[in-house]
Design a protein around this nucleic acid. Structure first.
Lengths: 111, 111
DNA sequence: ACCCTGTTTCGAAGACTGTCAAGATAGGCG
DNA sequence: CGCCTATCTTGACAGTCTTCGAAACAGGGT
């Protein structure tokens, strides 16, 4: 959440080099996307308004705890939010966070 | 390089969930960006037409071999190209690769 | 031919990651 | 209250990653 603000200052990679502090804020977000399971989880979450863990878990040949761990990584990276409603926990993306990463990769017409 | 083609088929994360094969192709590219040193290296490379390793190394408190290792990761992820010209090796970004990652993160006006 | 500088490869140490089983926690229902 | 299901946390293990120093390789200059 503090990360969100820090990110707001970042312009595309090609504009000027990131300093060490900026890189330290952004890299963990990319790192969270750097696992195929998490990338699929995020894309499943992003493709609907919200989704229950109980709908995510069966899509993988992985244990519940493992899925839970990956969701925690996405949560701590600030890429998704979760909310418990009764028995189930619902996840949704944080569009600003993802959009900010997108902006960073938005190269002008170089090359 | 095969990765480049495979990527070309990917629409934004929110459009529909990635399948396991697509995720396996894209995740390593995000993973390469998931280290602060590599993110800074890439941003330094992206901010100029091309740049020599000899200009990259002194920007970090890391040994030459370590920088070389990170550059190799970026190269193998398809994010940069390198070319030896005489004594020095020059790096430049592969704009298509980076743009494709950007497209993936390009959320429509959700949320 | 020799040496010198720039870059990569190799091999090893320590930290980190993905995964699971087992146990803990949260909430609904009888 | 006690039980059941859904989810998360803990602890452990194997595999991977970051980093370094030492050694190899590439080119240019003397």
């Amino acid at each position: 959440m503090a990360d969100q603000q820090a990110l707001a200052c970042c312009s595309p990679l090609a504009a000027r080099p990131l300093d060490a502090d900026q890189a330290a804020v952004v890299a963990p977000m990319f790192k969270a996307l750097g696992d195929p399971v998490r990338l699929r989880l995020l894309s499943m979450i992003a493709s609907v308004p919200e989704i229950c863990v109980c709908d995510l878990t069966p899509a993988f040949d992985l244990s519940g705890p493992t899925i839970s761990h990956h969701l925690k990584v996405l949560r701590e990276a600030g890429l998704v939010d979760s909310e418990r409603r009764g028995t189930w926990v619902w996840y949704q993306v944080r569009p600003e966070a993802i959009r900010q990463l997108g902006v960073l990769l938005d190269l002008p017409a170089v090359g």
